[in-house]
Design a protein around this nucleic acid. Structure first.
Lengths: 128, 128
DNA sequence: CATTCTAACTTGCATTTTGCAAGTTAGAAT
DNA sequence: ATTCTAACTTGCAAAATGCAAGTTAGAATG
């Protein structure tokens, strides 16, 4: 159970994803599904214990989920839920600030800025 | 000197303001100047040592500055610089997510969503 | 001008979070 | 049946955060 510092929507959002790693996990998933080892191979070098703990917390918070591993591969990949995808505009704003204000940063790929929360909506299951 | 985890603009932005408190300090300043004790009286109850350290780091990073205390009041208030104000869109996106996705949050005041980075540009000093 | 008051910090130490290295497990490949 | 590897878990060290109390410098009071 998350303890909120106040009723402020910003403070509360940060109480969910405001640790050192959660938003970077979400960032990776904006560009598509990723496995445990995909996250480990990112440039920021997250530790394995932290990654495992963050993945389970983000799953519990409903921001990410695991896809069914079809026909026995090791395990499923992680993907964003609609709730997690709701953070895309915030990530895009943070990326823009970093590119503009911090010298020498990479430019985020066009696909990242083109991503929209609506791209991650669950497909409706057609009625009959 | 800040150590960046990677060249990623999001990761790097979080290396500057991604701790537990910095973005809440910036949030407060979006609505206007604030003194040390103004920050202390906010609902989230930041500890005094943390506040002092964050204010000096944010000042050093160029995101906030102290206004000149005219004719001896205790000390000047803190205000956002243009660089700090560049984070306003990210804060607005985080606030919106919190209001939409977390039950029972406060609604941020209209003035908060109306704020624009351009409102915090330094006035030009006219040439002669 | 001496004393009191208070905003703005600083210090010391406890607690929590993060990081590192090594170990474990379960299914896949040989 | 054995080996391999992705996906974790565990134990401990280091860093960040939190708490309570103390300090300081200018402002107000008498």
């Amino acid at each position: 159970m998350i303890k909120f510092r106040s009723g402020c929507p910003i403070a509360s959002t940060l109480d969910i994803v405001g640790d050192k790693w959660s938003l970077l996990i979400v960032r990776t998933l904006v560009l598509g599904p990723a496995s445990y080892s995909d996250f480990l191979s990112k440039a920021e070098r997250i530790a394995t214990n932290i990654l495992a703990e963050r993945l389970s917390r983000l799953e519990e918070a409903g921001l990410i989920r695991q896809t069914q591993a079809r026909q026995g591969s090791h395990r499923g990949s992680y993907v964003l839920t609609a709730k997690g995808a709701g953070l895309i505009p915030a990530l895009q704003a943070l990326a823009l600030w970093g590119e503009e204000q911090i010298p020498g940063r990479w430019k985020a790929p066009e696909r990242f800025y083109a991503a929209r929360p609506a791209d991650f909506e669950q497909p409706e299951i057609p009625v009959s």
